[in-house]
Amino acid sequence: MWLVGGAGALVLGLLATLAVKQRRTEFGVLLALGEKKWKLVAQQAVETVVIAALAIGLSSLFAQSLTQLAGDTLLRDEAAAAQRKINAWQPPPPGSTGVQEGIDPDDEPVQGADPIDKITVRLDPADLATVAGIGLGIGLLATAIPAASALRLNPRTILTKGN
């Protein structure tokens, strides 16, 4: 989970860096007109928060049903694979351990076992809030760092050297 989160944060940071880099000229013009640097960073942060709020809202509407559908599909596929394995299992020939044939005699299917045929996926508001908070934090950090680095430059430097 941490690896996926780290990779997502890295991708988000790279996308935010590209977005800020494309807007360097805009920042240079606004700074030359007297706009405060903190207002430009705040504008970037507000844009990120608005997009994140929309994404969190949409995901909270659809996450439960999509996750349940994915869980049911995975369970159905796993049950079908287990059934194929049960149907294909053959005991070792008489007088043999089955090792030479690649058969594990201890791998015999359990008779009368109650298979799992239903899975219930639940999305708690606390879990959604945790994920939303982490995502929002990553988004703000990924926006603020490149914006702050772009704003270190002098407006004259931004406008004369371009990208």
Rank of each mutant, 00 (worst) to 15 (best):
K39L: 08
R84S: 10
P91G: 13
A55K: 01
Q68D: 09
G13W: 13
V110R: 14
T17H: 12
T25L: 14
Q22K: 11
P92Q: 00
L66T: 05
D106P: 00
A113N: 09
A150V: 02
L151Q: 08
A80E: 09
W2I: 11
D124H: 14
Q90H: 12
E101N: 07
P91Q: 06
L66G: 01
A79E: 05
Q44T: 13
L140V: 02
E35N: 10
T160D: 11
R23A: 09
L123K: 08
V29Q: 07
L123W: 14
P91Y: 11
L136I: 01
A52S: 13
I158S: 07
S65P: 01
I86G: 00
G139Y: 09
G13Q: 01
W38Y: 08
T67N: 15
A70D: 11
L14P: 01
V4G: 05
L18M: 08
L140P: 03
L141A: 12
V131K: 04
Q100A: 15
V49N: 03
P115Y: 10
V20Y: 12
E101R: 01
G139N: 03
Q68T: 13
G98T: 01
R122Q: 13
I158G: 07
P109V: 09
G8I: 12
A129I: 07
G57M: 06
G5C: 13
V4Y: 04
P91T: 11
K37L: 06
W2F: 09
A55D: 01
K21C: 05
V50E: 02
A82K: 06
K39P: 00
L40K: 12
D114G: 01
L3P: 05
G112D: 15
E47P: 00
L14G: 09
V121D: 04
G6W: 04
G102C: 04
G71H: 05
R76P: 01
V110G: 04
V29D: 08
Q64D: 10
L10M: 10
G5E: 12
V4A: 12
E35F: 13
L66M: 12
V49H: 02
G95T: 08
